[in-house]
Design a protein around this nucleic acid. Structure first.
Lengths: 261, 261
DNA sequence: AAGCATATATGCAAAACGCATATAAGTCAA
DNA sequence: TTGACTTATATGCGTTTTGCATATATGCTT
């Protein structure tokens, strides 16, 4: 509230500095500007698509069919089109490679070590997505496979990935580093942002939500404290319905309350 | 501790998949790769250099001498060289435009809206730096000037900047958005990371540290609680010396204890 | 209907926090 | 030298939060 007041106190209708003469000069300058005079890196987006299964964190990867790193597992990604924003490029990758739309997607970090891609200079803007397990269908061909994310050290070291037959797969490029940063980011964000819901179906129990948090954080949480905090957060809407098929007393199902429509 | 164990349990010496034949194929592929076949955006770094003066947050800006946005204030920035990393590019901007070296510098976010620069497609990796006021000398020419950062709305709306004679200056490009995100980032980070020290001289009092936090957060903090938290954090080293020239009882000077050398 | 396993509610001690009060200490002016 | 002044530092206490333990409730299964 106080912030809003100070904002308006300083805000100004303006752009009066941009007078007509200035605008004309600028148009002339732009007409004579030649964009091809400098070397430019390629820019890609890579998306860390995270989901859960059986109490473990999983990431969706694809196996590279071409050089470099042929045969290695890698994050789905693609070049940024000249007419699309970074967010749009990430959403396009998510849609075209994972068949996913409307999921939680956020920029993570930009990786630009000069030799991270042996072909040419490639700068990669990394994103991470959180997807409810029910929305993922595994597909053949160029599509993505779910691979368990083992625990990485806090030091940010390389992350090896364990496949379906419990084989270890090193990742292509610097994707292990990107994956490690995604896990650290989501873990940190869990403590102050309501992102656990993104990995659950529309309706869920408090126990399920706690299990999501425990899986991401990698440690057990106090049940009562967790319940109290979640209920006090005001973001859970009780549906009045109960889960079914548990065999024992079912818990109430809740919905995530979207504050801002 | 527990995490480190799990890391080693999964870690594997490997890269055994990369056999000789695969390596040879890859070399042939790279030799025939033509990097010039795709359109590429330009990539720049822009640095939000933040400092404090008289209990206000300030940012170092330069006034544009060329189109586009000629005459507008803008963040110092530059193109990313083909052989330098993003961090190196940001450090270079900090050094060449601000004469600053060895200051706190961290990647903020990457901005890539297609029309953010009217010349051509420019993707900007934004960084922010925190600088102790004593290290900044204002310079003429192409150099930077300190400009007060007024309070921006939490919504991330445009940030206008107030100059020395209390004029308002709109910022070039999307730099207002970048500045707003930097302020939000540092504010959030203050609650869990020891970054307040970066804006203070080597030795400082608890009151000075609290004033830094209050300036950044834009609100008063409880004095006792702040002292207890800081002293309990184990990051402050008492020097045994006292400040001087206060006119009244001087407080003890502390140093920031660097855990990791 | 009884047993069962979990959900939900209540109580309580320890720690963290906000607030108020009391004491200590260096500076300045007379 | 002394006393007033202002801030630093220490102490106490009620409130809130958190972790832990216990008690009760509830729907399902047999």
């Amino acid at each position: 509230m106080r912030f809003a007041y100070m904002l308006f106190a300083y805000k100004v209708p303006t752009v009066s500095r941009r007078n007509d003469r200035n605008r004309l000069e600028e148009q002339q300058f732009l007409a004579s500007y030649d964009p091809s005079q400098f070397d430019r890196p390629s820019v890609t987006v890579d998306v860390v698509i995270l989901t859960l299964r059986a109490g473990r964190l999983e990431v969706l990867l694809t196996q590279r069919k071409e050089h470099p790193f042929k045969g290695f597992w890698s994050l789905p990604g693609g070049f940024v089109g000249m007419q699309e924003s970074l967010d749009e490029a990430a959403a396009r990758v998510l849609r075209s490679k994972g068949g996913l739309e409307g999921v939680y997607l956020e920029q993570l970090y930009t990786f630009g070590a000069p030799q991270r891609d042996p072909r040419t200079r490639v700068i990669s803007v990394a994103y991470y997505a959180l997807v409810e397990p029910g929305r993922i269908q595994e597909r053949e061909g160029n599509a993505l496979f779910r691979v368990v994310v083992p625990w990485e050290g806090e030091a940010g070291g390389p992350v090896e990935v364990e496949g379906g037959r419990s084989r270890r797969h090193p990742l292509a490029f610097d994707h292990a580093e990107i994956l490690g940063m995604a896990v650290r980011r989501i873990r940190g964000k869990l403590e102050y942002a309501p992102i656990g819901f993104e990995l659950l179906p529309e309706r869920f129990t408090l126990r399920q939500l706690q299990q999501v948090h425990e899986t991401i954080l990698g440690r057990k949480l106090n049940k009562d404290s967790f319940r109290r905090r979640m209920l006090a957060s005001g973001r859970l809407e009780p549906t009045g319905e109960l889960e079914s098929g548990t065999g024992y007393r079912p818990a109430e199902l809740y919905t995530f309350k979207k504050d801002r429509p």
